[in-house]
Design a protein around this nucleic acid. Structure first.
Length: 293
DNA sequence: AACAATGACAACCGCCTGGCG
DNA sequence: ACGCCAGGCGGTTGTCATTGT
């Protein structure tokens, strides 16, 4: 609709990547590093759009990518983070090392949103669905469960090119600090359906501004701000594990911290649901925002 | 065995933001 | 202040595999 494509598609290869293309891209990036995506295809001898190259590298070829086998713990974490952040896939991915936003987005759309619906929870709002809807979902689940039983038995990773499946040992995920990611205060983001607010709070600068750039997979934060909004206390953005609101805890590295934070969030949410109290609304916004930095 | 329906996920698309001249 | 460009993001589509009839 009126907008020119990011690059001329004439003569460019599209669709699934071939092993040869993967090799060319990997070799080029190993030799010259990431970046300059627009000119990269030409230099690397690829008949691909730069965007396509970037996507392929970011989502599949990077050496630190962990494919498939999303563990139940990761499931749980994704659901919780989604309830806090909405469809901010890159932020959610930032908490799951080796996972990409695309993978998590796909996993959410194909598995988790359905699962939540089947459990009677609205995947967008994370609130309980009304009974009839929940029942209807249950009914649908029963209809399909027979067909799905065999499918979900084995956790597999699939390589598009050789189509082989392999077992991967489940790993207990460690919750990491978010990778520095550009963002706009989601409180004013029009895209986020699951997390809306009538107020606009700006962060002033992105995480990249704070740490001097670096993009995905690197860099640190330059600020360590504590917010106290009358009851909820949040630590805002610091690479130091001691101040990581997800990882850190009073006794150091207790996994229950996330649960505590989540509980706090839910309580704030409930307060708002019941009273529409402005102060609580601000608390909730501050809390969610603290997770973004 | 053939076909349809569905699931899974890789890839694409358009929009947005920040940096820079 | 403005426009252009590169990079990044989230939504959507396309394609292939699997399952059901």
């Amino acid at each position: 609709m009126g907008r020119a494509p990011c690059c001329s598609k004439v003569g460019l290869h599209r669709g699934p990547w071939t092993p040869r293309e993967d090799t060319l891209l990997t070799k080029y990036i190993e030799a010259h590093g990431e970046g300059q995506w627009r000119s990269l295809p030409k230099k690397a001898g690829l008949l691909r759009c730069g965007k396509s190259c970037r996507l392929r590298w970011m989502n599949y070829l990077r050496p630190d990518i962990k494919r498939g086998n999303i563990t139940p713990d990761e499931d749980d974490l994704i659901i919780r983070l989604h309830s806090l952040l909405g469809n901010r896939w890159s932020l959610i991915a930032g908490r799951l090392p080796g996972r990409t936003d695309n993978e998590i987005k796909n996993y959410w759309n194909t598995h988790l949103s359905k699962r939540l619906r089947n459990e009677g929870t609205d995947p967008n709002t994370h609130k309980k669905l009304s009974e009839p809807i929940a029942r209807e979902n249950k009914r649908r689940k029963n209809q399909r469960s027979k067909s799905n039983n065999n499918k979900k038995e084995m956790v597999m990773t699939k390589d598009k090119n050789n189509k082989t499946a392999q077992h991967v040992e489940p790993q207990k995920p460690k919750v990491h600090l978010p990778k520095p990611t550009r963002f706009t205060s989601f409180l004013s983001l029009p895209r986020n359906d699951s997390f809306t607010s009538s107020t606009t709070v700006t962060t002033g600068s992105s995480s990249q501004d704070l740490n001097g750039g670096g993009g995905r997979g690197g860099g640190g934060f330059g600020v360590n701000t504590w917010c106290n909004n009358g009851g909820l206390v949040f630590c805002v953005g610091d690479e130091d594990q001691d101040h990581d609101p997800i990882n850190s805890s009073a006794d150091g590295g207790d996994d229950h911290t996330l649960e505590n934070l989540y509980e706090e969030y839910l309580q704030a949410l409930l307060k708002i649901d019941h009273h529409h109290d402005h102060q609580n609304q601000l608390e909730l916004e501050s809390f969610a925002e603290s997770l973004l930095i």
